[in-house]
Amino acid sequence: GQGWYTKALGGQLKYGFDLSREAIRHAAGQDKGTHYAVAGIYDLPLADGSADVVTSIFTPLPEDELQRVIRPGGSLIQVMPGPDHLLELKELAYETAYRNPDKVRQLEGFEAPECIHIQKTIPVSDVWDLFEMTPYRYHTPKEGLERVKRAQPMEITFDFVIARHLRKEND
């Protein structure tokens, strides 16, 4: 992405990747402490076993690539939407709102994940602005878009699951 989370992370040597050249340019301009490159998550420009920690925030998990680049004893920190993430927004946008899956997958080559769940409902004054930051913006029928555009300020649930997957030492 645009490096917001990566910039906030500690560590002496950090790398950030995205397929968007514009996002990488922005990230590199804002964060001089990280090495950024245009690259896909399924073919990372990293040596085998070279990563102590990899973060995956609202992205698919390229399991084979994670097994390749995370050293034994290293970690994957995964952030994903919890079951009720933006549920009120989805209720506006869709005829039938859906809940997100409430299960963290066990990854091959990793210990069972340790998880924490964070949920908070907060007032949102500009519902459309929030909506435009989500992938729902691109998959919502016209009628749903109109309902969201007309929405008044409302309480919206932000729901996250954070999982730490520890790479097995002997795998």
Rank of each mutant, 00 (worst) to 15 (best):
G74A: 01
I116V: 15
T6F: 11
D43L: 06
G73V: 04
D48I: 06
V38H: 00
E146Q: 15
P113V: 08
R68M: 04
L9C: 14
L76V: 08
E63S: 09
Q78P: 05
V69P: 04
R71A: 13
D84C: 12
L92R: 06
W128T: 14
K103S: 11
V124E: 04
A112D: 09
D48M: 05
F110P: 05
A47V: 03
L130E: 01
L107N: 06
P135S: 09
Y15I: 12
Y138L: 11
D52T: 04
T6K: 10
Q2T: 15
E146V: 14
Q119P: 07
Y36E: 02
A23H: 09
P45I: 03
F131E: 02
R150E: 15
G16N: 06
I122Q: 11
A163E: 02
I122P: 01
S50Q: 04
F160Y: 13
W4Q: 11
A23N: 08
K14Q: 12
M133W: 03
T34G: 01
I70D: 01
K32S: 13
R21N: 12
S20F: 07
I70R: 05
A151R: 05
Q30R: 13
T96C: 07
R71V: 12
L166S: 12
K32V: 10
T140W: 02
I70G: 03
I24K: 01
E146D: 14
R167L: 05
A51W: 01
Q119C: 12
I122R: 12
N100L: 11
P113K: 05
E88F: 02
T140R: 03
F158E: 04
T121H: 01
A93S: 09
D31S: 07
E169G: 06
Y15L: 13
R99A: 09
T96Q: 15
Q78D: 07
F160S: 10
K142I: 12
V127A: 03
P81I: 00
D18H: 07
P60I: 04
L166K: 14
R105K: 15
M154W: 02
S125G: 02
H165P: 06
E132R: 15
V53Y: 00
E91D: 13
P135V: 10
S20V: 07
A37I: 00
V127K: 04
D129T: 13
T140G: 03
N170E: 13
D129Y: 11
L44T: 00
D159T: 08
R21V: 14
E146P: 04
L86C: 10
N100V: 08
Q67A: 12
G3T: 13
